[in-house]
Design a protein around this nucleic acid. Structure first.
Lengths: 194, 194
DNA sequence: CTAATCTCAGAATAACTGATATAA
DNA sequence: CTTATATCAGTTTTTCTGAGATTA
């Protein structure tokens, strides 16, 4: 009676070795592991967010607004690698929930800013508190291990042109004045995401 | 004029340190990095899959069927951490595309097996070939680095009860006879996924 | 005039919940 | 009778494409 290996990553690794694909077994296990871990964290976060009326994508948008006070919709799209239309929709929902509002850009009438509301800050802080203690603090890695992992993933991110550790003007972004688009956009929204 | 740090992970890390959340900065950067990497791989894979008429979730199901020949729908749900209803829908689509078909379980009339078709194998092989060369082989890590990364993520997976490196009876699963449900299921489908 | 920015309409997906039929 | 399995109906959600409208 055959018994299934109840670990998709390990099962795949054996499969790869069985077929002699030694040149891609490293990459395959990396991708499979990362996707599995993503699923873990995504589910953990969503479970905490649900009672607050948030989903993870909405939490991400709110996080950007919380950090910068306000931001052009297009910038949110670039940062999150999603299309402008998707951001329009996310901001619609946040606005309907009273967590942000649209305000005019001071100098560019084409641009709309999403600005976080006091209620948005309160909700985000509760969300952050939950995720901080239940997800981030629960990652079972030492500081050294966490740093190793982040550095390894940095190689992956750099490899596709994702910006890691950019040098900034010493002037850091001033949170309350709102984020503006830098000269070098992150990356264009591309392809599908579910 | 404020300039946005165009790296969400690095921006968040500075934010955390600024607020003195040194106890969660490691976990936060780990989670953010993993999610970013997931997005990279997911998008790369989907772009390759699209011309073949597949999406990544469908590719995953097909991969299970390719490995085991056939599998009970419930097992697919457990393996992928999704609900049975979602698998029903995925298998519907694969079946409509002629990539798998439903067959009766030999001994348990409650159970339905999804079995890969010859066309399913051909399509999967093309998909795998593309992903192998364009995604897995392109992961810019040495074998050692890949192993380090996988081991770090294993700690995360073990921590939530995901099964890693289970010891098996020496009898490996025999692919063509179909996968059967082992005594210890992986993990129940939980919460939301996008 | 062209390029940039956002919104809208329309569509595909994947995922969930809860109820139901069937069989072990 | 209870449990397990799959399906169905209905909903939510995110995301995309491509087509405007408006302004720089």
């Amino acid at each position: 009676m055959p018994r299934l290996i109840h670990d998709p990553v390990e099962a795949a690794r054996r499969h790869w070795l069985e077929y002699g694909w030694t040149d891609t077994v490293g990459g395959m296990t990396v991708v499979a592991s990362i996707m599995r871990a993503d699923q873990i964290f995504f589910n953990q976060a969503n479970a905490l967010l649900r009672p607050l009326g948030l989903t993870f994508p909405r939490y991400e948008v709110l996080g950007i607004l919380n950090a910068y006070g306000s931001a052009p919709l297009g910038l949110i799209a670039e940062t999150m690698w999603i299309t402008p239309a998707t951001v329009t929709s996310s901001v619609d929902r946040l606005e309907a929930a009273g967590l942000c509002r649209r305000v005019a850009h001071p100098t560019d009438a084409r641009t709309t800013l999403a600005a976080i509301t006091p209620k948005g800050r309160r909700v985000f802080e509760r969300a952050l508190e939950a995720i901080n203690t239940e997800v981030f603090a629960a990652v079972p890695l030492s500081d050294d291990e966490a740093q190793q992992l982040v550095e390894l993933i940095d190689k992956i991110r750099r490899n596709v042109g994702d910006v890691v550790g950019v040098a900034l003007d010493d002037q850091a972004a001033s949170p309350e004045t709102g984020a503006s688009r830098s000269s070098r956009p992150l990356k264009r929204p591309r392809t599908i995401r579910r």
